[in-house]
Amino acid sequence: MNPVQSDNAIKAAARASVTIGRPADELRTLWLDPGTQSRIWTHFAEVNPLDGRTAEWLARGPAGGEYRWRSEAVEVGPDEIRWSSLDGADVPNTGQLIFRPAPGDRGTELHLEVRFDPPGGVIGEAVSKLFHIVPGEIVRHALYKFRALALTGEIPTTDPQPAARKGGADR
């Protein structure tokens, strides 16, 4: 294996884990709810679900860059959900979410990994530059939002709120 390529491949893969005090089947149902997907990736992309298995993604980069792809679930099992972008994606990518029981009364562990294959080669930095967000943050924040949604039914926000800027409100 070429060590340089290996390093770059790791940079382009983003992983994060959270533990949520709910059973796996309930969390899986919530994850697969099309409305959920459109709410938990907002820091990264607009996700428009087409049906239970496919969705359209639009990620905006700095300086007006727009990157689109369509994703499709390729496997939905009791402990694992996998999806992949379809042919023609501006930034090909795959995702995998694994559910594992957490110890004691702690509920369920969610392990999320998304791999990006930006045009021009697999380079982690390219992902950051394309989307203006580091890959790790893309998945971590999505999992945090999902955890909040699963536990409280809402996602924390301060947008918009009073502030002495931009005409009196922070957006």
């Binding site: 533990t19 005090g21 702690r106 509920g107 943050e137 971590r140 924040h141 945090y144 955890r147 909040a148 536990l151 409280t152 996602i155 924390p156 926000t157 301060t158 947008d159």
Partner: peptide, 28 residues
């Protein structure tokens, strides 16, 4: 700000609430 639903809130550790921070990327 505490949600009352997460593991921390349910263990009376409210200032460690898992769900009320909207900008975790700034603090983590």
């Amino acid at each position: 700000i505490a949600c009352g639903q997460c593991w921390y809130c349910q263990h009376d550790l409210y200032s460690l609430c898992d769900t009320s921070h909207p900008k975790p990327e700034l603090q983590e």
